[in-house]
């Protein structure tokens, strides 16, 4: 049994880089479907709705009367979200972590 150990070590040494190469090839070619994106960056829907929810609370407006109508990247990786609020407008700044940093009536 002991005499097999050098052989095993040899084949292991030979096979290990091959196995790595296999993984490497698989990963580098990335044969997954092409990435899609939107022609303009907008805030994730969950963040837009967080802004709407915060506005409903802060301005005491029914949540059914507040809707995000546009959004765009803001500073520090966050977003600016424009809200239609029962006929009025408001702008919300929100971070990627979902924390609203400012909310003002337009």
């Amino acid at each position: 049994m002991n005499s097999l150990k050098p052989h095993a070590a040899f084949f292991f040494a030979l096979g290990f880089p091959v196995a790595l190469a296999g993984c490497s090839t698989s990963n580098s070619s990335t044969p997954t479907s092409p990435v899609v994106r939107t022609s303009e960056a907008t805030a994730p829907a969950a963040l837009q709705l967080t802004c709407a929810s915060e506005a409903a609370t802060r301005f005491d407006v029914s949540s059914d009367k507040i809707l995000p109508v546009s959004s765009r990247p803001g500073g520090d990786g966050g977003y600016l979200v424009d809200l239609s609020m029962d006929g009025q407008q408001a702008t919300c700044a929100i971070g990627e972590d979902g924390v609203v940093t400012s909310l003002e009536r337009a």
């Binding site: 899609v36 994106r37 939107t38 303009e40």
Partner: peptide, 17 residues
């Protein structure tokens, strides 16, 4: 409306989907 774009690996550019 905003449009979807797809990455074309052949030209390495984003093209309108």
């Amino acid at each position: 409306a905003l449009e979807t774009q797809i990455f074309d690996p052949a030209t390495r550019t984003w093209v309108t989907y």
